[in-house]
Amino acid sequence: MELLIFYPIAALAVVLALFVVFNKSPIGSAVSLIGLMLCLAGVFIGLSAHFVAILQVIIYAGAIMVLFMFVIMLLNLKDDDNVIWKSREGNTLLTVLTGFLVLGILYKIISITLSADSSKPAKIMESFGTTAEVGKSLFTTYVLPFEVASILLLVAMVGALVLAKTKID
């Protein structure tokens, strides 16, 4: 039953992810990305992590993608066949490094998944994925990563403000 829901959503997610990369118009890419985020939220619901699914919709599909749309609207980007994306010379090294990084992460994920014993799935607690549980683990076990991430976001926000301010003055 769960697989019946999981496979269509996962397949749709993969197709939409490909659309994001191969779509020529920026609006199309952005819309596909929104769809992809919603599919991921669906996968989270399938894993009975309801709160995380809602956060996925509110933060990624809602807040962040609206900003993407904003940029597209303000710059009035159109799909233009004349624009050919060229990778700059200096980027080659960076591209290769990023490629290796992604490969490494994928390898790790696949090896963890394969090594797990799928015949005895772990028991899911009754309270798993509820708001209270997620909040508790965020403020006890994972309090340091949580605070570090929030400081990182604050720094980014201050940085953006400083950059914009100097331009205006």
Binding site: I27, L38, H50, M65, M69, T131
Partner: peptide, 26 residues
């Protein structure tokens, strides 16, 4: 009857913005 009911309401209604944004863009 969702456990995170009110959050879900906000999440879905924030998706509604896209209808207006897409109408403006397209």
């Amino acid at each position: 009857n969702v456990n995170v009911g009110i959050l879900f309401v906000f999440a879905i209604s924030s998706m509604g913005i896209y209808g207006i944004v897409l109408a403006g863009l397209s």
